[in-house]
Amino acid sequence: MFTVDWSGNPADDTRGGLSYGFKQYNAKYGETAVAQGAGNGFLYSLAPKITVGLTGTVSKAYDGTTGAVLAGGNYTVSGAVDGDTVSITQTAGSYDTKHVGTGKTVTASLADSHLSAVNGTVKVYGYKTVNMSAAGPVGEITARALTVSTEAVSKVYDGTVSASGTAIVTSGALHPDLCR
């Protein structure tokens, strides 16, 4: 059993110290199902919109792909209301190219399911994203480290210091067949 209070906007409420276990936005009275099936909660018709951006650096060593892995700290979020904290759970993104460089554009596709919101320890439901992707020049792909050696080289003295040998990649190649 639970109790819910319906309202238009939390800014118009005086909660008077009421204890609650969840908040839900974008809830229409008599139409919207309650997102959390237990505990006391507040339901609001207000439908807050979140704008997401990218910040910091998304970095990896060259691996021949454009795949990027983002962390929560790579996102900026604006538009939260009533002291709520909204975070992004999307970790997959992509670099604009697979090539080594800095200031590379990274793009992450977003959906409302990638939003997670709390108010202190209370779960919050109903936030929506304004933008369905976030992009910015936060990418860095560094050169991949290779270890190269040569086979034993011997030569007959000819008065020069040059010699010929075969370079062997011993580690770091993307394709194991290229390593010996």
Score class of each variant (00 low, 15 high):
33 A>W: 10
22 F>P: 10
79 G>W: 05
140 E>C: 08
77 V>C: 00
57 T>K: 06
89 T>H: 01
41 G>H: 00
73 G>W: 14
80 A>C: 13
70 L>I: 02
19 S>I: 14
125 Y>R: 03
95 Y>P: 03
133 S>E: 09
116 S>K: 12
53 G>V: 06
87 S>Y: 00
3 T>P: 07
86 V>F: 04
99 H>C: 11
81 V>R: 10
12 D>T: 07
130 V>P: 09
120 G>N: 03
131 N>L: 13
79 G>V: 07
77 V>T: 06
136 G>D: 06
37 G>D: 05
101 G>A: 10
109 S>G: 06
179 C>H: 15
4 V>N: 12
88 I>N: 00
54 L>E: 08
87 S>N: 05
123 K>P: 04
34 V>S: 13
95 Y>I: 03
19 S>A: 09
127 Y>H: 00
102 T>L: 08
124 V>N: 04
40 N>M: 00
125 Y>T: 01
44 Y>L: 13
155 K>F: 02
137 P>R: 05
49 K>L: 12
144 R>I: 02
150 T>F: 13
6 W>F: 14
81 V>A: 05
145 A>W: 10
139 G>L: 07
8 G>F: 04
72 G>N: 12
157 Y>L: 07
63 D>T: 03
141 I>A: 11
105 T>D: 02
7 S>F: 15
98 K>C: 11
11 A>L: 04
24 Q>P: 09
32 T>C: 05
106 V>R: 00
107 T>P: 01
162 S>Q: 10
159 G>W: 10
36 Q>P: 02
112 D>H: 02
164 S>M: 15
